[in-house]
Amino acid sequence: MSEETITLEVTRYRPGHDREPRAQTFSVPYRKDWVVLDALNHIKDRTDGTLSYRWSCRMGVCGSCGMMVNGVPKLTCAAFLRDYHPGPIRVEPLANFPVVRDLVISLDDFMEKLRRVKPWIIREVEKPVAEGEYLQTPAQLDLYKQFSMCINCMLCYAACPVYGLDPVFIGPAAIALGYRYNLDSRDEGYRIRQPILTEAVGVWDCTFVGECSVVCPKGVDPAAAIQRSKVAGAKEWFMSMLLPWGGR
C-alpha cells in the first residue's frame, strides 16, 4: 500500500555558493500527528543530510524552530501538517533576518537588542543573600506575568514590517521584555531602562501594525507593551514640561 505524501518547498541557501536562496521540493510521508519540524527531520534523516535548520525542545519552549510556513511566522514544532493539507507547504527562513544557511537565520541583531534593554532585575543596592529573596505578591506578579512568557522565538520580528524595512528598530520582543522588568516590583531599573525603550529607534518607531501580537505563540502581546510604553513615555515628557521638578 502506498503511503500518502505531502510536498514541502524548502528554502535552500549555501553561503559562498548561492547568490540568493532558492526553493527545493521534497516529498514526505503525510502523517496527521506530524508537525512541519518532523517533516524537516525526516528529510534530513532520509533524503538530504545537508539541510540546515534550528530546533531543540520540540515542545514550544525553546523558541529556536521559528520559520515561515506558507508565509506566516510559526514555531515549526507546533505547525501540524494536517493544517496545511493537501499542501504544498512552503518552508522559508524567518523573514526580516539575514540568512546564514538554508533555514538558519542570524540571531546577532536580536541578541544585541535584547541585551540593550537590560532584561534582568536591576537593584540600586543588592541585598545580601542572607536576607533572603525579594518577595512579591500574586497581584504584583500578575502585572507583568504575560510579558514574561516570551521565549525569544523572534516570530514577532518576522511579522513586523517596520523591522523589515529598517532593522535599527529595537523591535517587539525586546521592548516587551524591557517593559516586563519595568513592571516588576522587585526592579529598580526603570530610570535606566525607560530611556532606552523610548529613544527614537525604540517604541516611537512602531506604527502599530499589530501583527507581532497576532503571530506570538505565547500570548505575550508585544504590541500592547509597546503602546503602553509610549503612553508612559509621553506622560513623563508632559510632566517634565509642566512641573519644574520633572517627571514621575
Binding site: P98, V99, P161, F208, V209, E211
Partner: peptide
C-alpha cells in the same frame, strides 16, 4: 546605534514594495 554592516556570506532579504499586500493585517494597517 552602529549602522549595520552586511556580513559576507549572509543573505540579506529586502521586503518588496508590495510587502503590505502580504497579510490581511498589513492591508488593514
Amino acid at each position: 546605534t552602529v549602522p549595520r554592516r552586511d556580513r559576507p556570506g549572509f543573505y540579506y532579504p529586502k521586503p518588496p514594495a508590495t510587502w503590505w499586500l502580504r497579510r490581511p493585517n498589513y492591508v488593514l494597517f
